[in-house]
Design a binder for these strands. Structure first.
Length: 765
DNA sequence: CCCTAGACTTTTTTT
DNA sequence: AAGTCTAGGG
């Protein structure tokens, strides 16, 4: 039997239409990935060489999974030369051989968001701009937006509309900052994420040789999640697909949730206008969810105005309605949901395993409550997101050394590398160095190499120190070309003193950090051996770096995903499915987010909720809390407007069990603006005051107080405790317990003001 | 120069 | 609540 027999009629037609442009509109759960993978497998089977196929995805994970699934359909050697990956990673590979034509060397490095922000901050400081107004995130957002729309610094400075917007935000010099930022990136032989795409486009536009080569090589272009592409990506796809126009895009406008970072839904809406001969395939049958879930989701998304008409339906079981549950506060929500999880798990009729269950939320901060509650009940869980492995400080520090060795002009890497281990080269010195480097148009490292050649006010010993550091880096740069990535990394860490510094720190966190770096080394070794298996016998560190710089993906520990409840943001859940899904925090100002004001933004949030609901295969429960602790404050919000958008016929209100009223020790209160009278809840009446809950933890209110603690501590024991209070002392102290059940905590005076402590929280060390 | 402690800001999503 | 930034003392 041929594998195409696993497809329905429309899917099959979509797979077989390999020539010419096609648009596949794939409703949620309609087998989008299946069509894409089968299409590629089919092409390979038809004898199209893998080298001619380029498949672009949105995340590394999607690319990896697709490759795995293709390998199940065709022999490995047939699929070997497939070009498959994210826009960014594919473009980096294609750009590198031509980097010199673009004003870079082939050793260019990649600035991540932190690097970009740090550079922006430095530029603003140089120009004496107010950091309160020119916040690095806002400035970077603005620059990124411009880049996504292919607006160069010069064009930006001439664009009256943009300048007006900047004036309104009091950022009069933004165009200048953009221009300096861009020149600094080039001087550092570095690209930020957006540059990767822009430079690919520039390459295609300015270098006929490269353009011809790539257009000829990639005769078939496939793009996944096309609704999430931005303008640059749109141009890029158009350019790559040019002569043959064998372009296949797959997407669902109803699942477009990334416009905040430049995704332009009109790319998919206008595809047919761009390619009038395009074939349209609508995958409308949902294979994932029960009818109730599909119907509920449909009734929700029906409230959006902008969308492609389609009729997603399920022929599965009717299933049970969406559960809706209200809680008094966020803690009760966590407790209640975890209870429901345990109940589901005990339900032997369903025989669920923990990995069948997911808790989805709008913001990462919401995970905390669930983590605690799950841990308390010994339920294994797994959190997606948060700081991924490659975002950890120690890892970034280590990678900074690699980057610097590969690209000595990488100024941000240099600044980072200098922070660890301490080398007696501090802020003051580096301020002098950077200023001098900028004035003389040199890299920071170059100035450090020859401090005597530059007008630096610096002591002799300090000159020695910085030139010694430069010499060490230069030596590493030489070595980097002489050994494979793993041997080099090991050597570098030893030579630079990173290894020793890590070993010296015997604190719990220090040991953790050392382990993480060891982990990184393991990853490098694996990378090298994997490449060896693919027939590449020499893997330099550069290869590892360009791979890793684009791996913000949270995908390290695949092994232990089994039998764990999944916790993640709705964004992270896109493309996944679970038999049981809990969507929590359905409140105004949270979901939809407080930052969404325009109708357009609200529609995107609604799509986000749509994505969340359609993750569920059999059971979907939605919850909200009447009050929630957020940013150090208790907030009150009405239930989300989206709850009213769902047709009541598909919703069942779950009765509350008697809830123990949870208490909270302190905090100011704010009331969110109620949206409108909500049929699930009486309108939020004007409550005058929050009940002041009694703290459950031992507390005292003045400094230098002897405070009673729980008797689990004994005299002479060193305990760890946190202190909260006005003046924001929320630090961890380690103090000795003096006599039975008492602890003496001495607090410093800050300036002239004595700290008033309202509460202390005690934890075992 | 580096560390510690206090002040201050933050508010989403991610290649 | 938690992370980042900064000033001042060692």
């Amino acid at each position: 039997m041929h594998f195409l027999d696993n497809l329905n009629e429309i899917q099959r037609k979509a797979v077989e239409a390999t020539e010419g442009p096609s648009l596949i509109v794939a409703g949620a759960g309609s087998g989008k990935t299946r069509v894409l993978t089968y299409r590629i497998a089919y092409m390979l089977q038809q004898g199209i060489p893998a080298g001619q196929i380029m498949a672009l995805t949105f995340t590394n994970k999607a690319a990896r999974e697709m490759k795995e699934r293709i390998l199940k359909l065709v022999p490995a050697q047939d699929a070997r030369y497939l070009t498959m990956g994210t826009f960014h990673s594919v473009c980096v590979h294609l750009i590198r051989p031509y980097a010199d034509l673009l004003g870079y060397t082939s050793a260019f490095t990649i600035y991540d968001t932190a690097d970009s922000k740090s550079l922006i901050k430095a530029i603003c400081k140089e120009r004496g701009l107010d950091e309160k107004i020119y916040k690095s995130s806002a400035v970077l957002g603005r620059i990124s937006m411009a880049k996504n729309r292919c607006i160069s610094p010069a064009q930006y400075g001439a664009n009256q509309h943009l300048l007006k917007e900047d004036r309104e935000a009091r950022m009069y010099e933004l165009a200048t900052v953009y221009s300096i930022y861009q020149s600094r990136l080039i001087a550092a032989n570095a690209m930020d994420f957006d540059d990767i795409l822009i430079n690919m486009l520039r390459l295609m536009d300015t270098c006929p040789e490269a353009c011809d080569r790539y257009q000829q090589q990639f005769k078939y272009i496939l793009v996944d999640e096309y609704q999430d592409t931005n303008y640059v990506q749109y141009l890029l796809v158009k350019r790559l697909a040019h002569p043959q126009q064998n372009i296949c895009v797959v997407g669902d406008d109803a699942q477009s949730i990334y416009s905040f970072r430049g995704a332009d839904i009109s790319n998919i809406l206008n595809f047919q206008r761009q390619y009038p001969q395009a074939k349209l395939f609508k995958l409308e049958r949902n294979y994932r969810s029960t009818q109730n879930i599909v119907n509920a989701a449909n009734s929700l998304i029906h409230n959006n105005i902008h969308q492609i008409k389609k009729n997603v339906y399920s022929e599965g079981e009717e299933g049970s309605p969406l559960g809706l549950k209200a809680f008094v506060d966020d803690r009760a929500e966590a407790t209640g949901i975890v209870e429901m999880i345990m109940r589901e798990k005990r339900n032997t009729a369903r025989n669920l395993s923990y990995e069948d269950i997911a808790v989805l939320y709008r913001t990462n901060a919401q995970s905390r409550a669930f983590e605690g509650e799950l841990r308390k009940n010994n339920i294994p869980y797994r959190i997606y997101g948060g700081t991924s492995f490659y975002q950890r400080k120690e890892i970034k520090d280590t990678l900074a050394y690699f980057r610097l060795a590969v690209n000595p002009k990488d100024n941000e890497a240099l600044l980072r590398a200098l922070t660890f281990p301490s080398r007696g080269i501090g802020d003051t010195t580096m301020k002098k160095v950077t200023l001098c480097a900028i004035e003389n148009n040199q890299s920071y490292l170059e100035v450090m190499r020859h401090p005597d050649d530059y007008p630096l006010e610096m002591s002799g010993p300090m000159r020695k120190k910085i030139s010694a550091f430069a010499a060490m880096i230069d030596e590493m740069a030489v070595q980097s070309e002489e050994m494979d990535a793993f041997r080099f990394a090991e050597m570098l860490l030893r030579q630079t003193g990173v290894t020793t510094a890590l070993m010296m720190d015997r604190t719990t966190e220090g040991i953790d950090r050392a382990q993480n770096v060891q982990e990184l080394l393991n990853a490098i070794r694996e990378f090298v051996t994997q490449r060896a298996n693919e027939g590449i016998d020499y893997t330099p560190i550069t290869d590892f770096l360009s791979e890793v710089s684009l791996m913000t993906d949270q995908d390290d520990n695949q092994a232990d995903t089994t039998n764990r409840v999944t916790l993640m943001t709705v964004h992270a859940a896109k493309g996944l499915e679970f038999p049981v899904v809990y969507i929590v925090g359905l409140e105004e100002n949270l979901f939809p987010s407080q930052f969404c004001t325009t109708q357009y933004e609200i529609e995107e949030e609604r799509r986000l909720f749509y994505v969340a609901i359609t993750r569920a295969m059999q059971t979907c429960v939605v919850s909200y809390a009447r009050q929630r602790f957020r940013n150090g404050q208790i907030t009150f919000n009405s239930p989300s407007r989206f709850l009213n958008d769902i047709d009541r016929a598909y919703v069942q209100i779950l009765k509350n069990n008697p809830q123990p009223s949870t208490t909270r020790w302190s905090g100011n209160t704010t009331w969110g603006t109620p949206f409108r009278s909500n049929s699930y809840e009486r309108p939020t009446t004007t409550r005058t005051q929050a009940a002041q809950p009694q703290p459950s933890i031992p507390t005292r209110t003045t400094t230098n107080q002897v405070m009673p603690i729980e008797s689990i501590y004994s005299a002479g024991e060193r305990i760890e405790h946190k202190v909260f209070g006005p003046g924001t002392v929320n630090r961890v102290y380690r103090d000795l317990v003096t006599e039975n059940d008492k602890i003496e905590i001495a607090f410093d005076k800050v300036g002239t003001k004595t700290l008033l402590l309202s509460h202390a929280k005690l934890e075992r060390l």
